[in-house]
Design a protein around this nucleic acid. Structure first.
Length: 418
DNA sequence: TGACGTCAAGATCCG
DNA sequence: CGGATCTTGACGTCA
């Protein structure tokens, strides 16, 4: 059982993915961006290994205009050493990666041009994974596409397009239920004719329901049969509905109580769970810690070290409650810890609490900062207190101090990103 | 024709 | 000039 996240690694320097506009996409620019992005990918893989994250979706933007005529580079040859090195790390660590072309890659469009571009896009994704040298259990996830008033005909078009795909794509392609057109039953029937395994998405199923009498465990059991040994363990997508957002909008973070309910219903060794959530890697780490058999309080202490100033900035009260909670070194109160943490993070940063936290963080530098730095900091602190200066500027000053005086504890802190 | 979703690029504004 | 904030792009479908 692996739990993973999609595309972005939150709060970790050197992991960003860059792109450019079509008009600016010169060969030079593209080469520069691809090299940059592959370095980021390697940093992400390193980070995942360090944090025991064994499931990860690689952003489709990793090669800018990867399937567009705008990009004529033979990137898979130009950056062969990089691909090999990254691929080695993925394989050696037993990590499973995937890619997921977005809603604009439509294999069943009545428009031939659209289908052609979709095939090109799938070629790009397959080529990327092939270049890493990873096996067929590293998947490309695709939705069925549009309906165009007649679902049956649209499905037939999907199937016939599917059959034209290269073996390199077919061995990786898996199909997912979506939140408006194709229910999990629809996708299962497409799987029956194509042989493509089915990714079950719980939130999409909740919105675009196939059968209200059936629960997640039922569909996971059913879709499991579409996964063959060469496909690797069955993979599903898990997300939660944002309370304030539109229907289908993902939550800021994964709420552990419902996740654990879900987990206990469906958990098994040969099931991988891809989380779809705004805070990405942060939720992956949360869910991995909450479900690990190696229950050591050290894991929570490490988490606390990263989050503590973000909590202090919102609620000194909860800050103390969590500190007390972690005092017992023989316990492993993961659920209580994250419940309190998430409760705090939902709270507003007020002037008073922000000033308090900033002053607290400044404590790291009170014996190091120059007179000039000290004066500048307290001047800005005073401004923030009087609602006359921005908190961002104040935190930027603290960040610069952390960099200049090399305080790793602060440099890792989510205080500067949450 | 705009909304949808997503992110960073690019543009513009501000001090 | 640097930093903060707003707008655009890239994609296809559907109302």
């Amino acid at each position: 059982m692996s739990i993973g996240y999609a595309c972005l690694t939150i709060g970790i320097p050197g992991t960003s993915i860059r792109t450019c506009r079509k008009v600016n996409a010169t060969e030079e620019k593209l080469k520069e961006l691809i090299l940059f992005n592959l370095e980021s990918l390697e940093n992400i893989i390193d980070y995942n290994i360090k944090n025991k994250i064994k499931l990860f979706r690689i952003s489709s933007d990793i090669i800018p205009f990867g399937s567009s005529p705008v990009n004529t580079l033979a990137w898979w040859e130009l950056f062969k050493p990089q691909f090999e090195q990254i691929g080695q790390k993925i394989k050696a660590s037993g990590m499973r990666v995937s890619m997921h072309p977005g809603q604009y890659t439509v294999l069943n469009s009545p428009d031939e041009e659209v289908v052609l571009r979709a095939v090109e896009d799938l070629n790009y994704h397959a080529r990327f994974l092939d270049s890493l040298g990873v096996g067929s259990e590293h998947k490309i996830v695709l939705h069925i596409g549009g309906v165009y008033q007649e679902k049956e005909i649209a499905v037939e078009r999907f199937v016939s397009s599917y059959q034209m795909l290269s073996a390199a794509i077919k061995k990786r392609l898996v199909i997912e239920n979506d939140d408006r057109s194709y229910t999990v039953s629809d996708v299962l029937s497409v799987s029956l004719t194509t042989g493509a395994p089915v990714i079950y998405d719980n939130l999409h199923n909740a919105i675009n329901t196939s059968d209200v009498t059936k629960d997640d465990a039922y569909w996971i059991e059913l879709t499991r049969k579409t996964w063959k040994p060469e496909d690797g363990p069955q993979k599903i997508h898990y997300s939660q509905q944002s309370a304030m957002g539109r229907i289908g909008a993902h939550t800021r973070t994964i709420s552990l109580d419902p996740f654990m309910d879900f987990y206990h219903q469906v958990s098994r060794e040969d099931l991988d769970i891809m989380l779809e959530v705004k805070d990405k890697s942060l939720s992956a780490i949360k869910c991995i810690i909450a479900t690990t058999p190696q229950q050591h309080v050290k894991l929570l202490e490490k988490e606390w070290s990263l989050y503590k100033y973000s909590v202090l900035e919102r609620s000194p009260k909860l800050y103390d409650v969590i500190r007390q909670l972690l005092k017992d070194k023989n316990s492993f109160p993961a659920l209580d810890f994250y419940r309190l943490l998430d409760q705090a993070l939902e709270m507003e940063v007020t002037t008073g609490t922000a000033v308090n936290a900033a002053a607290h963080v400044y404590g790291y530098f009170k014996n190091k900062a120059t007179e000039r730095e000290k004066i500048a900091f307290f001047k800005q602190l005073d401004k923030v207190e009087k609602n006359d200066g921005s908190l961002k500027t104040l935190k930027k000053m603290l960040w610069n101090l952390a960099v200049n005086y090399n305080e790793p504890y602060l440099l890792e802190s989510y205080y500067f990103i949450l």
